[in-house]
Structure formats: structure tokens, C-alpha cells
Computed example of a mutant assay.
Amino acid sequence: MADQTIKINLSESKKQKPQSDQLGFGKIFTDHMFMMDYIEGKGWHDPRIVPFQPLSLDPAAIIFHYGQTVFEGLKAYVTKAGEVHLFRPEKNMQRLNRSSDRLCMPQLDEEFALEALKQLIIIDKDWIPSAPGTSLYIRPFIIATEPYLGVTASKHYQFLIILSPVGSYYKEGIHPVKILVENEYVRAVTGGTGTAKTAGNYAASLKAQEVAEEKGYSQVLWLDGIEKKYIEEVGSMNVFFKINGEIVTPALNGSILEGVTRNSIIQLLKHWNLPVVERKISMDEIYQAYKNGQLEEAFGTGTAAIISPIGEFIWHGEELVINNGKTGELSKKLYDTLTGIQYGTEPDPFGWVVKVQ
């Protein structure tokens, strides 16, 4: 980027901020957003913070027709002392670039993108909610904007960052959720785009999610796309199981998204000297562990929910109730520790927290 000066155009009409109990997830947005453009041969240019507003795109823009887009999700937290914390934001910027590479999209200067993010948060700092369990969700994303109906990588892009004050991702909060094991639909396969955070992966998940919700379940457990035997993810999260004292999570295999929270959980467990392994794990193994009374806990991990305990699976019509449908001791400890680090109430031995100001 030749010019890294961020132009700032502040909104003249501020929105009314919601009450903490009215937040929900991802429906309310702050006063400003960050934008930057890309043209092949010129590179990224014209970085700017502007009032939150609709985009104007050509109907032939490649994003609409071939889904060339990537995105990220992270959060900002305000501490009791009034500090604003980010949690491992450099990992999100690194993953954004990895996703871009998979979809033939241009790389960002990760340090500059993070600096732009910090400036946007400072401007909209008053939007960060302070009630327990609330935060400011951050959505950086890149879209292909060149108007062209040929199947090829775009030569024009926009990088944007929008902010949304949020409460709990699931209405259940830290309470256990019920999960339907998906035996028909597939989220991703090795060699596909499963390791990229791109819109198509999530569009492909909607049908199974709709079926699960109709049956009264919060999410689906995805199995591998070849044999439909091995566990991959749960909903839009990575997944962990505690089996006979050992914590197991599916190994990254080319179709599983490498979650920042997943990586953090593994580091925490090792820090506590608890046995944690990454390997292939089949649904049949989980079923046998359940039957033998060795399936002690299961939980999903992700930026939105942090830790989402799983209280029940349904597989081939059979209900597998875990820990009497209650939040497990390990799940609660992981949730409390991670959120404590994020909100500045727990020590941060890993140097994960980045202070915005």
C-alpha cells in the first residue's frame, strides 16, 4: 500500500444505543465502518472510516455470482478499568489472508488492517457494552466487486470492517445445547474450502441447520464428507470431547476450520497439564464411550459463543445425554478462564490480550 493514511469522516447523526438486554447477536451496528479498495496493478488504496451505510455495487459484481468473499469474526471487550481488549487479533488477520489465498484474493497488510481495526474501535468505543457476557463483535470481510460474469478471480475488491454490540450467541448462553448428528448433508471436504472462512461454507450448512431447528435442536454435528463417519465440527464451531479423562478434538484435516478459540483451548489444557490430543474420532467411538459411561463432557468452541457445552446428541434416533444435560466442570472452567483473560479479570500468561487504548 502506497498511502496508509486513514481518512476519517465522522457521522453527523449518531444512532441510539440499545440496552444490554436488547442486544441479541449481529442485528445492531455501530455508527461507523472501515473501507478500503483494491484494483489489480494499483493494490490496496483509499483506506477510510465512514458512517455506517449501504454499499453500492454493480449487479454483475463477481461476489453475487461466484461467491468470492472471505470474512473473520473477533471481539472487543471493555474491562472494569475501562480498557478495551482484543483477543489474539493477529491470528484472525493471518487466517483472513489464508482464506484469501484459497479463494485467489489479494493479501492484506496484516499490521495495517489491525491498526485500521483499532482506529475504528476507538471511534466507536462508546458502543462496547459493559454488562457481563456482552462484547463488541467485529466483522472484517473482503468482497469481489468487479462487474464480470466470467468465471475467474476478480481484479477489484473491497475490504470492510463493521462492528456490532452483542450479547450471547445462543439464547441458552453457557447452558448446554442439544445437537443433531448430521448424516445426510455435508459442510466441506478435504481439498475444498473448509479451511477457509468463506460464505459458501455457511450457505451449504443452512439446510441441515434448518432441519435441526425444526426438530428442536440448536445445531448439527458435521461428519466427514467422504465416509460420513468421522467428526469434524459442530455447527459453526470446533468441537471437543472429554472421554475417560482425556480431551479429544478432531485433527485439522484440510476441511476443518482452524479456530482461534480452538487453538487457545488446546494451549490452556496443556498449560494445566491435562491430556489433550488432536486426532480422527468417529461418531461410533463417541457412541461406544457414551454406552461405557466414559463420555464425560462435550463442548463447541468459537469466537461467538466462546464455549458452548453440549448436553445431548441425537444419532440415528437415539438420544445421548451427556453429564445429565448439565454444564461440565471442565467446560465451565475453560469458559471462565478464557472470558476472564478477555475481560482482564484473569492473568494472561500467554500474552493473548491486545490493548486498544
Rank of each mutant, 00 (worst) to 15 (best):
I128P: 01
D109M: 02
L108N: 05
R102T: 01
L55P: 00
T79S: 11
G26W: 07
T30I: 00
A60Y: 09
E12C: 00
E90V: 12
V78D: 05
E83D: 15
L103V: 10
E111G: 09
R95D: 02
Y77S: 04
T30G: 00
S99H: 03
L74W: 12
M33K: 01
L10T: 14
F29W: 04
Q107F: 08
N92Y: 11
Q16W: 01
P47I: 07
F71G: 01
S99R: 08
D31R: 03
V70F: 13
Y77D: 10
M93T: 13
P89K: 10
D101V: 12
S99G: 05
D109C: 02
Q94P: 15
G41E: 07
K75G: 08
R88F: 03
Q107A: 09
E12G: 11
Q53A: 13
D31V: 00
V78S: 07
A81T: 13
I121F: 09
P106Q: 11
Q19C: 06
F52C: 06
S11G: 07
I121E: 11
H65K: 12
I63C: 13
E115A: 11
I49T: 08
W44E: 07
K75C: 05
M33S: 01
G43C: 02
E40R: 10
H32W: 04
A116F: 05
C104S: 12
Q19D: 14
E83F: 04
Y77W: 14
D31F: 01
A81M: 03
F64H: 10
K75P: 06
N9S: 05
Q22I: 10
K125T: 13
E72P: 09
Q53N: 03
F71Q: 02
D126M: 02
L117C: 14
I49K: 03
H45A: 08
V70A: 10
T69M: 14
Q16K: 13
L23F: 09
I39Q: 13
H45W: 01
R48L: 12
Y38M: 07
N97H: 14
Q19P: 04
F29Y: 09
Y66W: 04
E40K: 13
Q53L: 02
N97P: 15
K80M: 00
K15Y: 09
L96Y: 11
L108Y: 05
S13L: 10
K42H: 03
F71A: 01
V78F: 06
N92H: 14
I122R: 15
D31H: 04
E115T: 12
V70E: 08
I28P: 00
L10A: 07
S11K: 06
S99L: 01
K14E: 14
V78G: 03
H45V: 05
F29V: 02
F52Q: 01
V50W: 05
P59G: 05
I128H: 08
L103A: 00
A116S: 08
D21M: 08
A61G: 06
F25P: 04
S20E: 15
P59H: 13
G73I: 02
C104L: 12
L86S: 08
M93L: 15
G43T: 02
I121Y: 07
E72G: 05
Y77R: 14
L117K: 14
